[in-house]
């Protein structure tokens, strides 16, 4: 069952095959979780919103129409809408606590080095989350999912050239934000 292509699994899931939907779930749950985690900065909210994405996807499978975009693009669009709602509902939400990032890998064993890295990570994620949502999406697909521009273009429904251009603008904008933040320790 796990060797089903997305196309077949989606068709069977749309016909009510729960095992086919389970295959799609197993295939994409980590990616959707990562997208939401990096957008919200909270593991708890990432779990809550990931669950909502898949419940919404399951209840709308019968209405899913293959328009040439991959199934993941549909899931990302649901996730994007739910994250947008989350930001709207939490507009006065406080900044995410540093402790929320402590599960990130590749940390130094030295406490001071780890602290500096945590602070830099917090600043970086703060600056990334100030970018428009499509730029955040691009950065997550590029640096978290490690996808190529061509793959990102398919998911985001744009041409590869448009993605390259958006990517360059995003890096320049991020660099400007870093410059404005001054590089001072938090």
């Amino acid at each position: 069952m796990t060797d089903l292509t997305d196309e077949v699994a989606v068709r069977r899931a749309a016909e009510g095959d729960q095992e086919a939907f389970a295959v799609l779930y197993e295939r994409y749950v980590t990616r959707i979780y990562n997208y939401i985690y990096y957008r919200t900065g909270s593991a708890h909210d990432a779990e809550d919103l990931t669950a909502r994405v898949f419940f919404r996807a399951m209840s709308n499978m019968k209405n899913y129409r293959d328009r040439g975009a991959p199934f993941s693009a549909w899931l990302y669009r649901i996730a994007h809408n739910l994250v947008a709602n989350w930001y709207r509902d939490n507009s006065r939400r406080k900044e995410v606590a540093l402790e929320d990032y402590l599960q990130l890998p590749e940390r130094s064993a030295h406490p001071e080095t780890a602290l500096v890295r945590d602070q830099e990570m917090e600043r970086l994620l703060h600056l990334i989350r100030k970018q428009p949502s499509e730029r955040q999406h691009l950065l997550i697909l590029k640096f978290v999912e490690r996808l190529s521009n061509a793959e990102i273009a398919v998911i985001m429904g744009r041409s590869e050239g448009a993605i390259k251009s958006l990517y360059h603008r995003t890096l320049n904008s991020l660099r400007d934000s870093l410059e404005k933040s001054g590089g001072e320790p938090l």
């Binding site: 939907f21 749950v29 979780y33 985690y37 990931t50 669950a51 399951m58 890998p105 640096f143």
Partner: peptide
């Protein structure tokens, strides 16, 4: 960015619970 951003693994218990709830 490449060295700083990396995938995080959701809690396997959460993934299993959600799978059960969905199915």
């Amino acid at each position: 960015l490449t060295s700083s951003l990396s995938p995080v693994e959701p809690d396997p218990a959460f993934v299993g619970r959600l799978r059960d709830r969905l199915l």
